[in-house]
Nucleic acid binder design. Structure first.
Length: 559
RNA sequence: AGACCCGUGGUGUAAUGGUAGCACAGGAGAUUUUGGUUCUCCUUGUCGGGGUUCGAAUCCCUGCGGGUCUACCA
């Protein structure tokens, strides 16, 4: 990074201090998603943070499925999470865990808690619990069974565990302080009854631990030293510490909170992403418009770009909204160095070279990547009838227009200088064909007499060009800050109706051969990625990853 | 209304009592066989008010603004 080279974010500083004063002798972190959805770019930030810390301090980072709620979790999600973490470039080694693998141990600890007089079974209904809870101004009231004996609680919890009660009829609660200003300390529920099938433990359990209870224990069982989570868990920390202290676990991990990532023009909550998928507003979790890791992968974003972006946004406790331009810059920066160039015409119009011999075909040599000589060259067929972008011709243009307009000379990329002679139009006045003459001495794109042209345009030979589907993606939402919805609007109203435009593009022959997942640049158009799902051998489908920066579009009159 | 957290250019982030810097975005120019890339330059900031100090973005007080919390979700 170009920030001050010695900069260490606040979590690194905490770890530095812990190691320096001997409070810790190693660094163990974890990335603990609940497998109830696909990972998104916000998770990528957490993954980079946790695995990054482990790498930096030569510790380890566990991948752990936080699967304590059987009604919301699925193996499909487990598999996608593993794939995404790996794709991002991180390795959990042998340290893959599941919260559900600890259910026995957690249950035993719950019994221990009861024996310590620190937990009790409560038979209040959900509504009653809420009512007894009190609020900011009023302390809560004790549950009728709050002071039941250890024996009674042990028995009641045993009956809960055996499935003798229906869902909702009883819960196990920690016994802390019904008057605490922190609501999470007012005897939080730590076990509830769920008669549901769990994707890992099957039908073994009828009681399942709550997040607040399970998470600190998972961390402690695994020897996690630094348990990093997002800001909204700040108020949960007192309970996290209370539980470890009360149970006196051998390892006492430290919970540290940082600000979650927010991005302009998109949503980041799993709930909303799930709704987009379920309501069919996108094609799936991996729709290239989604901020999911799988969506971005399909769109053509690289792991390096995502990692770089996460570095750029940093780690702080500030609530912030990162400009998606930061992400796009990281992507362009990476793709500019690594992707091969090709010529593809997204909105074709015919260009006829009047003085080029009918039937003649030449193979012109094109450079694959000007940023990388080792990428080599390729041959591109050239002939009398070409296709160019419709926007590269203007019958009447101002002086700043460097492309084709009657009387003006431009270079055909890797081809010849051509001078525009005019155009033909249909009855409606639409241009059907642009005409020009070429200078045979400029083959390859340089004039022997040293004359210059201001513009270079891309092209394909009509007779040789392939035709492919290109999907032009734009931002999913037309609204910048999705955490700030205008009065009277639903967030769905803010979807960008033009987030996807499909076109039939005409492409140079070499482009037909690229395999699924290949990232390329369409010269002067943008970076594209052959869709991993819909591409067929010889018939790739291209997703536009991001456009090229376009300083002409900014000042040009709208086409 | 309480408790807790957070306020640095348009955006993100440094400076940890001692020159407010970097990246993105925006603007101008140069280079260029992509109006891309690269290079140069420029615009824009410490939320307000007090205090401590030789010196405050940094420490204290206060006001303001934003966020979080009152699930048998995580």
């Amino acid at each position: 990074m170009s920030e001050s080279p010695a900069h260490r974010h606040f979590i690194q500083q905490i770890v530095d201090a812990d190691l320096a004063d001997g409070r810790r002798s190693e660094v163990v972190t974890r990335f603990p998603p609940e497998p109830n959805g696909y990972l998104h770019i916000g998770h990528a930030k957490s993954i980079c943070l946790n695995f990054g810390l482990a790498l930096e301090f030569k510790g380890r980072c566990h991948l752990r499925m936080d699967d304590t709620n059987p009604t919301k979790e699925e193996v499909e999600y487990v598999d996608s999470i593993k794939e995404d973490v790996r794709w991002l470039g991180f390795d959990w080694g042998g340290h893959y865990y599941q919260a559900s693998d600890y259910f026995d141990r957690m249950h035993a600890d719950a019994i221990r808690l009861i024996q310590l007089g620190k937990a009790y079974v409560c038979f209040l209904t959900q509504d009653q619990i809420r009512e007894f809870h009190g609020d900011e101004k009023r302390p809560g009231r004790p549950s009728p069974t709050r002071d039941a004996s250890v024996g009674e609680n042990l028995m009641a919890f045993e009956r809960m565990t055996r499935g003798e009660f229906d869902e909702g009829k009883a819960v196990l609660r920690a016994k802390i302080d019904m008057a605490s200003p922190n609501m999470h300390m007012r005897d939080p529920v730590i076990y509830r009854i769920r008669k549901a099938h769990h994707h890992n433990t099957g039908d073994k359990w009828r009681v399942y631990p709550m997040y607040d209870y399970a998470h600190p224990l998972e961390d402690a069982y695994e020897g996690v030293t630094h348990s990093i989570c997002t800001l909204e868990f700040e108020v949960h920390r007192p309970f996290y510490d209370w539980l470890l202290r009360t149970l006196d676990t051998p390892v006492k991990p430290q919970q540290i909170e940082f600000a979650r990532l927010n991005l302009t023009y998109t949503v980041m909550s799993k709930r909303r992403l799930l709704e987009l998928v379920q309501e069919g507003r996108v094609a799936g979790w991996d729709d290239p418009r989604m901020p999911t890791i799988s969506g971005m992968r399909r769109r053509g974003y690289t792991p390096a770009a995502l990692r770089r972006f996460c570095e750029t946004v940093g780690v702080t406790k500030n609530n912030s909204l990162s400009d998606v331009a930061l992400l796009e810059h990281a992507v362009r920066d990476d793709l500019n160095r690594t992707s091969s160039r090709f010529m593809a015409v997204l909105d074709p119009v015919r260009l006829v070279i009047e003085n080029y011999p009918e039937g003649q075909v030449e193979e012109l040599q094109a450079v694959n990547n000007p940023e990388d000589p080792s990428a080599g060259t390729r041959k591109v067929p050239f002939s009398r009838t070409l296709l160019i972008e419709r926007a590269d011709f203007l019958e009447q243009a101002e002086k700043k227009f460097f492309r084709l307009t009657p009387g003006q000379e431009v270079r055909l990329r890797w081809g010849y200088f051509v001078k525009c002679t005019g155009c033909r139009k249909d009855a409606a006045g639409k241009v059907t064909e642009v005409t020009c003459v070429y200078d045979p001495s400029t083959r390859g794109g340089d004039a022997p007499d040293g004359r210059k042209v201001k513009g270079t345009i891309h092209w394909v030979s009509e007779a040789h060009a392939g035709e492919v589907e290109a999907r032009l993606y734009d931002r999913l939402f037309a609204h910048e800050d999705l955490n700030d919805i205008p009065e009277g609007k639903d967030w769905r109203d803010l979807l960008n109706p033009e987030s996807l435009r499909k076109v039939r593009a005409r492409v140079e022959p070499a482009l037909l051969a690229v395999g699924p997942g290949t990232r390329v640049q369409f010269e002067r158009n943008g970076y594209f990625c052959a869709d991993a799902k819909d591409s067929k051998p010889g018939a790739p489908v291209f997703n536009r990853t991001v456009t090229l920066k376009d300083s002409w579009a900014k000042q040009a009159p709208k086409a």
